[in-house]
Design a binder for these strands. Structure first.
Lengths: 341, 341
DNA sequence: CTGAAAGCGCTTACAG
DNA sequence: CTGAAAGCGCTTACAG
């Protein structure tokens, strides 16, 4: 009851091993009739090529790697990654690719992981998340020759392709919505400074605030955790001309901010409007339900997987614009109480 | 600038390839002095054995597999899995093991994944989560000869080892705490029926309710999502002698239940006490903050990884009792308003 | 304690 | 369009 090998298939189909390999890999070198005979023999035997042997002979490993840097404090905080991974998987499965996941506790380890993956030929390509401005991983991956796709805004140089949901557009939609309600003082509880997509959002916010002539356009950075979101909320509200609306860079901070505002005696949305970036079940559960920027994260993952597989195949991988997050108004936003235009 | 192979190391150390292999894998067959010389030569060259070649020659793949069945609706709902994975990774990294992750949309696919992993020798062992009573995966994995560890209550037969946090103990702690506060009518918003750990919890609840002589001990099943939690809440409360306390099998449902109760005009904890199973940032953020059963999920993952690696090494793998979840009282629980004993 | 040799199961030029 | 052969980089009995 041993696993069938390529020899068994060759014998069953009455051809050489080479022919079987060509047929199975969809390469030229066998006639259509022979190919069909070989495929059905393989099917009948339940043959699947040994991945180690395939890899050793120079074929791709059919595996892509995702290395995630997560400090203990933000672990499991955001549903984003589980949803992203599910999208990645859905697409990778279609092509019989596997996902090798690695979580590291500090950024230095990521370089070691990439080096090992490369040396051992464990993966054919790599997905990079949470890109830093001037991210050191990119030159390393380039040096290692590992096909790479960025999940998030691609670096300006264009050296590596990315799947990118244009956060500037989403930010404008949210802030213009608040402005249309009458808000003139708006705060932004941003994510981690130094991350490329944080930069995109804060830049877009600053530019739009100028264009709209907002009275107050304040910003506070966080580490995406609930406590940081609460702290930023208190900080932004503890001023003379406090904002009448706050935009949070994730759902967990928006919920924490909602609670913090209520503790300060502010009613939402009466005294303060709250918007969350990235919708999640939590946004719909709290009271008032949170107005949120919604997007299809699994779809985002599927696109990233497709782009990476294209890069792995050597096809030109151009940046892909994913669906832009759009605003889902709920009960946490309203016209400001002070009624100023 | 090619990667160094075992030949390069052998040449540098002045020994045969076989000696290098023995030295690197910590097997007998080389003297201590030679071993050291070989190791430093390998270190100097930056040599890491090619994983495909190693696997093809019969060595373990140094990879373990985790296949997760997640219906789209519960995707990313629970922080549990990200935390579990982080714990798994922490331990696997120490042993230079990788984690192959596969998410499937239906249960039938899981069998196919295990068969493929086995045929291709892609993994040395498998972690199984969300065990069903009479889970068909277990006999399959046994037939495939894949070392397996269950994350959760191990099956009664003892055919496969598990890492298990004794939920019956935690359930008793929570319910006895509620009873001590004076609650005599308690409801349990349980998870998915048919899951082994759901069964452990509902059985423990029924037994304890009998022992305590509770007036009401009702139970509703869910799929772990917020809407299901809200629905179960309304269902359990829509009776003459409604419960004065509800225990929820996850955090997201507890938050949804809190909101649903408030919509029904009930105050928490005045009219209804709420307890969440598995603590998370969300529990601390909402108002009132939720009393929760807390445990160290990454630690749970680390234990599971250690157990699986033991099984992979052929060491006897006995069930491991992980830390029991303990109650963290917060503002969502209090004595019942009706004051009945 | 060491070295030479076979073999793991594929892929891919290369010659027919 | 097909077949025989080399080779990918290791591991592991086996003989010294």
């Amino acid at each position: 009851m041993k696993r069938p090998t390529i020899n068994d298939v060759a014998r069953a189909a009455g051809v050489s091993r080479g022919a079987v390999s060509y047929a199975l890999n969809g390469r030229p070198g066998v006639s259509e009739a022979t190919r069909r005979r070989i495929l059905s023999a393989a099917e009948a035997l339940g043959f699947h090529a040994d991945s180690a042997a395939r890899a050793l002979a120079g074929a791709p490993s059919r595996t892509v790697g995702l290395s995630l840097y997560r400090p203990a404090s933000t672990l499991g905080v955001e549903p984003f990654f589980m949803e992203l991974i599910s999208g990645l998987e859905a697409e990778l499965s279609l092509r019989s690719y596997a996902l090798l996941l690695h979580m590291v506790a500090d950024r230095g380890q990521e370089a070691a992981v990439y080096r090992r993956w490369s040396r051992e030929r464990a993966v054919d390509g790599v997905l990079v998340c949470d890109l830093l401005e001037e991210d050191p991983r990119l030159p390393l991956l380039r040096e290692l020759g590992l096909p790479t796709v960025v999940v998030g805004p691609p670096p300006v140089g264009g050296a590596v392709a990315g799947v990118w949901s244009d956060d500037a557009v989403s930010l404008r939609e949210a802030v213009e919505y608040l402005a249309a309600l009458g808000h003139r003082r708006i705060g932004h509880v941003a994510g981690i400074p130094g991350l490329a997509h944080t930069r995109v959002r804060t830049d877009a916010f600053a530019a739009l605030a100028r264009r709209l002539g907002l009275e107050v356009a304040s910003c506070a950075y966080t580490d995406y955790t609930g406590p940081a979101g609460a702290r930023a909320t208190r900080e932004l509200l503890d001023v003379a001309d406090r904002p009448t609306a706050l935009l949070y860079d994730n759902d967990i901070m928006a919920v924490a901010g909602l609670a913090a505002a209520q503790e300060l005696g502010l009613s939402v949305p009466g005294d303060l409007s709250v918007v969350a970036w990235d919708d999640s079940p939590v946004c719909r559960i709290v009271h008032p339900a949170l107005t949120a920027l919604t997007r299809d994260i699994p779809a985002y993952g599927r696109q990233a997987a497709r782009l990476l597989l294209a890069a792995v195949d050597g096809r030109p991988a151009a940046d892909v614009a994913a669906e832009v997050a759009h605003l889902t108004p709920r009960a946490s936003t309203a016209a400001p109480a002070d009624g100023r235009p």
